[in-house]
């Protein structure tokens, strides 16, 4: 059985989907914001793999076909952006300043924590691109002398965390404007956060999608300036 599961092409996808459905069900049933479907599915899949003794690489052999769709899905975020193009034009200034200050806040706060924890240059630049989309973040980390594997792990953790806490944080800080919410989520937690923003509404989703691209590009420009600080 264990060898069969390890070599099944569909097992990985099926447990991922079941995990997500369980997450959706629990969230609907108990209406608690900490019951995050993405987190629940991750925990569920990890549990299944450990319990059934299936190695991650074998799981990934099947599950990679879901990840394959990530690029086309990101491309499709342009559709929601296109539908909000008028709103985007009307609030150009707020959007640019909002994302810009978010990117600076991200770089600056990572710098301050690096000082606090006496991180080495390598550890510091590994964390520097933590809020942006994986594909850009890992290249920045590599170029600045970081460890890109750890950067990828931190970026995913940031995304899942952002997905979980975004709604609550917006509430605590009285962020009520849909545009502001969307930009905040996308700038802090890239595409994984954006899936949350999509749930909140069309404007939130579009603004979060926009932030993935803009925050990513701004970080490409600004991260090297911060890298020299430690």
């Amino acid at each position: 059985m264990q060898t069969f599961l390890s070599h099944s092409l569909f097992f990985g996808v099926v447990i991922s989907l079941i995990g997500y459905e369980i997450g959706l069900f629990l969230k609907k049933r108990f209406k608690k914001s900490y019951l995050n479907p993405l987190l629940i599915s991750i925990v569920f899949v990890i549990g299944c793999l450990l319990l059934l003794d299936v190695p991650y690489d074998n799981y990934y052999e099947g599950a990679k076909y879901i990840s394959y769709l990530l690029t086309p899905a990101t491309v499709c975020l342009a559709v929601s952006l296109y539908e909000q193009l008028e709103l985007l034009k009307a609030h150009k200034k707020a959007i640019i300043l909002g994302i810009g200050s978010g990117v600076l806040a991200s770089l600056l706060s990572v710098f301050l924590f690096a000082l606090l924890f006496h991180l080495s240059h390598e550890e510091y630049v590994t964390l520097l691109p933590k809020s942006i989309t994986t594909a850009i973040g890992m290249v920045i980390s590599e170029e600045l002398g970081g460890i890109s594997n750890i950067t990828v792990a931190v970026i995913i953790m940031t995304g899942v965390l952002g997905n979980m806490i975004a709604e609550g944080v917006c509430k605590v800080f009285h962020i009520e404007e849909p545009i502001a919410k969307g930009l905040a989520i996308g700038t802090a937690a890239h595409a994984i956060g954006t899936t949350k923003a999509m749930e909140l509404g069309e404007v939130e989703g579009a603004m979060s999608s926009l932030s993935i691209a803009v925050a990513g590009l701004l970080t490409v420009i600004l991260a090297p300036l911060f890298a020299h600080l430690i």
Partner: peptide, 22 residues
């Protein structure tokens, strides 16, 4: 340090971006 940094900076970025835009 990684988890502490990740959690707190994520909250900071959401708050700063959201508040300034708003």
């Amino acid at each position: 340090p990684m988890i502490v940094t990740t959690v707190i900076t994520t909250i900071i970025v959401i708050a700063v971006t959201g508040r300034i835009t708003q």
